[in-house]
Computed example of a mutant assay.
Amino acid sequence: MNEGPIILEGVTLMTLGMGFVFIFLLILVGAIKLLAVVAMRFDPVQKPSPAGASVSSNPTSDDSLIAAISVALHHHKKNFS
């Protein structure tokens, strides 16, 4: 029995399969990069604030966030103590 042609056919099939997967992944990466460029045109990322500036522009929302976190922690400690 001669296994030479069967092994050659298996290697050919493996090479074609890996080639198709590689090409598909290249197309997928290209499509993701293209979508990222299109998304940046519609909704650009805001530039970060300087190091000395506050992260939030609305101090009232910071106060309400701190209050909400404090209430949640108090409730958690009360229920699980």
Rank of each mutant, 00 (worst) to 15 (best):
H76P: 06
F20M: 09
M18E: 13
A31G: 12
F80C: 02
P50W: 04
H75Q: 15
Q46E: 10
V37D: 03
I7D: 04
H76Q: 01
V21K: 10
G30N: 11
A53I: 06
G17M: 09
S81D: 04
I23P: 00
L25A: 01
H76K: 05
M1W: 08
L26V: 08
K33C: 10
N79M: 15
D43Q: 11
A68Y: 08
V37Y: 06
F80K: 11
A39I: 07
L13V: 03
L26P: 05
L26Y: 00
L35I: 07
A53W: 08
P5T: 07
F42E: 13
P5H: 02
L8K: 14
R41I: 10
D43E: 11
F80E: 05
K33Y: 11
T60Q: 07
G17F: 03
M18R: 11
V11A: 14
F22R: 03
L73R: 09
M14I: 05
Q46N: 08
G52F: 02
V37E: 04
F42G: 12
S49K: 14
E3D: 13
K33A: 09
D62G: 07
A67Y: 15
L34H: 08
L13I: 06
F24T: 07
I6F: 09
S57V: 05
N79T: 13
L25F: 00
S54W: 08
P59L: 01
P48M: 12
N79Y: 03
G4T: 13
L25Q: 04
L16W: 02
D43L: 05
V71C: 05
S56E: 06
M40T: 10
D43P: 02
E3K: 00
V71R: 13
A72E: 12
V71Y: 13
T60K: 14
S54M: 10
P59S: 03
I6K: 07
H74Y: 09
L28H: 05
D62A: 04
V71Q: 11
Q46Y: 04
A31Q: 15
S61E: 15
P44S: 12
I69C: 03
G17C: 06
M1E: 04
I6D: 09
I32Y: 01
T15L: 03
T15A: 15
L35A: 12
L8G: 07
S64M: 14
I69E: 05
A53R: 10
N2C: 01
L8F: 12
H74L: 09
G17R: 03
D63C: 05
P59F: 02
G30C: 06
F42C: 00
N79D: 08
S57R: 11
S56F: 12
H76Y: 10
A68W: 12
E3V: 11
T12L: 13
L28M: 12
S56K: 03
G30W: 06
S64I: 14
M40I: 06
L8Q: 15
K47W: 00
H74C: 00
E9R: 13
S56W: 09
V29M: 10
K77W: 01
H74A: 14
V29D: 06
I69T: 02
G30D: 10
L28N: 08
S49C: 09
A51N: 03
L13E: 15
L25R: 09
F80S: 10
A67E: 14
T15C: 04
